[in-house]
């Protein structure tokens, strides 16, 4: 058993349903590299470890602890928690960083409850001070910045996807296989997994660097295509307000806001979105916000870096052709 660095930060890698490294890994390893030495944990199907470890090392993992098991296909949450408990026992990390995804939150919650560790959720960054690891949060829809820390022991942190820009330097691949003894904790059975095939080549909303979002102002499913056209011109992911989702213009997995996805892209373009607080909660940590709306009093303009009061159906086509012009 190799010795692990005294300042180890354990990063739980997530995989996609078809076994690839999830996009959250780069930000998690980047964040970990700023506060210590990133040690990654990969719980994967047999045979997938080498490829995944190589990718994790390229993103800055000093060591990749590997658990090869098929139990994650049959049981929800518990196999990952058992692996994480084993990894934490070996590594004695100062912090455990986990993606703030649905599965990530479950693993973080169960692990913190089992180990009695303090937990900080939906962090937008982490740092280290004299006392240890500090998690940074943006709460109440971004109205307040709050820092949190553990009174003692490791801090378990779920990190908002796309919120950390830091990237770690690539390191040589170091794989270490980890023995896990199952806890026997009761778990839900996974009966089936159906991959959601996004037919387009557009980036996924979560973690996207650019997002173009449409609201009720688009008026119909047919006209919502304008949002897609601009997204494609910018290589952006597609978002929507709850109003647009409720009106059936676009499926619910595109909903940005309190009850949908929270995004922190470099660029967020809001088209025909009034900007109710529930929507702003999910997007106002974007670095740059552009809004187009007919209503000059729409609250979205309060957070927009650049706002145009006008008709999306004249402004956006002009924008698309101006962008196309520039590419030529």
């Amino acid at each position: 058993m190799t010795d692990h660095p005294a300042d180890a930060i354990l990063v739980v890698l997530e995989t996609t349903p078809n076994g690839e490294l999830a996009t959250s890994a780069a930000g998690l390893l980047g964040a970990a590299s700023r506060i210590g030495t990133p040690v990654a944990l990969a719980v994967v199907a047999p045979g997938q470890a080498p490829a995944l470890a190589e990718q994790a090392a390229a993103l800055g993992a000093a060591t990749v602890l590997v658990v090869e098991t098929t139990s994650t296909h049959a049981e929800l949450t518990v196999p990952q928690v058992d692996a994480l408990a084993a990894a934490a026992a070996v590594v004695a990390p100062h912090a455990v960083l986990i993606s703030n995804s649905i599965d990530g939150r479950d693993v973080a919650g169960r692990f913190a409850a089992r180990s009695g560790a303090a937990i900080a959720v939906d962090a937008i960054g982490v740092s280290r001070d004299d006392e240890g690891i500090v998690a940074h949060h943006s709460v109440y829809g971004g109205a307040y910045n709050v820092d949190s820390a553990a009174t003692f022991g490791p801090l378990v942190v779920t990190v908002r996807q796309g919120a950390v820009d830091a990237r770690a330097e690539a390191r040589p691949v170091a794989i270490e296989s980890l023995d896990v003894s199952p806890s026997g904790a009761a778990s839900a059975a996974i009966e089936s997994v159906e991959a959601v095939t996004e037919t387009s080549s557009r980036p996924e909303l979560r973690g996207a660097t650019r997002v173009v979002a449409g609201g009720r102002g688009l008026g119909s499913t047919e006209k919502f295509a304008l949002v897609e056209d601009l997204a494609d011109a910018l290589g952006a992911a597609i978002g929507a307000s709850r109003a647009a989702v409720d009106a059936g213009y676009i499926p619910a997995n595109h909903q940005v806001g309190q009850t949908g996805v929270s995004v922190s892209p470099q660029l967020y373009i809001a088209l025909g979105i009034s900007g109710a607080i529930q929507h702003r909660t999910g997007m106002q940590t974007a670095k740059n916000i552009v809004a187009v709306n007919k209503d000059p009093d729409a609250p979205i303009f309060e957070v927009a870096d650049f706002g145009v009061v006008g008709d999306v159906f004249t402004v956006v086509p002009q924008l698309i052709s101006a962008l196309a012009e520039r590419k030529r």
């Binding site: 109205a143 820092d147 553990a150 309060e302 006008g310 004249t314 924008l319």
Partner: peptide
Amino acid sequence: AMSIMTAIAEKPPRAAGVKIIDAGDG
């Protein structure tokens, strides 16, 4: 072990940037 709040600050309201009325060149 507990998680404690070590700092809190009200974020300065995100300054609204430029808002223009579309005059055909929006």
